[in-house]
Computed example of a mutant assay.
Amino acid sequence: MTFSFLLFVTRRPTITPAEFKTYWDTKHVELLKLIAGKNFPLTHTRHYIARPGSAETNGSWPAVILAGAQEDFTYYGIAELVFPDESAFQSFMSIVSALEAEARIAEDEEPFIVREKMKAVVMGETSVASRD
């Protein structure tokens, strides 16, 4: 059975949502692949909150909300990392938590995310309904 977790990431206010997405997709994930090697997750899927605003909206880029309030959506991206099993997740975590790797990752995150606001949660069971 696979092991998954969700990561909620907040954009650094000095960059735009487009810059945030580009950095995460093209630089940060590549660094994680380099560091983790064969222990990189089976998948690292990134979802981005719809924020169609612009600099004219005071750089706030409000989320397109269907339920809840703007302040509920401090994060800009949600990543789902899927591993073959919990043991593979533990191997990945031990690699990325090693002092040198952790320092490289933190340095790379500095220009695009607010680390103090990062949240992560382990996924439980999944149920899927589909159109007949």
Rank of each mutant, 00 (worst) to 15 (best):
M118K: 06
I113M: 05
A79H: 14
L66R: 13
K117W: 05
E125H: 11
P111R: 07
V29D: 01
T45S: 13
M118A: 08
T22S: 10
S91T: 10
A36P: 00
P111A: 02
I105E: 00
E125N: 09
T43W: 10
I78D: 05
F92M: 09
P62W: 11
F73T: 03
D25I: 10
E107F: 14
E19W: 10
H44E: 02
E110S: 05
E116H: 13
E80Q: 11
T126W: 09
T43D: 04
F83P: 03
Q70C: 04
F89G: 01
K27S: 04
I15V: 09
E109W: 14
V64L: 14
L31V: 12
R51Y: 07
A106G: 07
D108F: 14
I35K: 06
I113N: 03
G68W: 13
K21C: 00
S87P: 03
R46D: 00
A88D: 08
Y76K: 06
E125L: 06
A101K: 08
A129V: 07
E116F: 09
T74Q: 12
E116R: 11
I78K: 04
S54M: 08
G68T: 03
I113A: 00
K119I: 13
E56C: 06
E19H: 13
I15N: 01
T16L: 02
N39H: 15
R131M: 06
D85C: 11
F83E: 03
Q90S: 13
L81Y: 12
S60Q: 15
L66K: 10
G59V: 06
K119S: 06
A50K: 12
V121F: 08
I35F: 11
L42N: 03
S97A: 14
I78Y: 07
G59F: 09
N58G: 05
W61D: 01
L32G: 12
M93F: 13
V121H: 04
I105D: 00
T126K: 15
F20S: 00
S130A: 08
M118E: 11
R46G: 00
A63E: 05
F8A: 01
V64F: 05
S87G: 13
G77V: 08
L31C: 10
S91G: 10
E107M: 10
G124E: 05
D25C: 11
E80T: 08
A98S: 15
K119L: 14
G59Y: 08
P17T: 01
D72P: 04
A103C: 08
G124T: 07
N58T: 00
E116P: 06
M123P: 01
F92V: 05
H28S: 00
A98F: 11
T2Y: 03
V122K: 11
L7C: 01
F92A: 06
R104H: 02
V64G: 00
P13Q: 06
A98Q: 15
E102Y: 12
W24P: 00
D25W: 09
Y75E: 04
F20Y: 13
E19Q: 14
V122R: 10
K38S: 08
I95M: 13
S97G: 15
E110V: 09
D108R: 12
P13L: 01
A120H: 15
F92W: 14
S87N: 14
V82D: 04
E80C: 12
W24S: 00
E107Q: 14
A129C: 05
P111G: 02
F92L: 06
V114R: 02
I105W: 09
P84N: 07
A129H: 09
E116D: 14
I95H: 09
T26C: 05
T126C: 02
M123K: 10
E107I: 13
A129S: 09
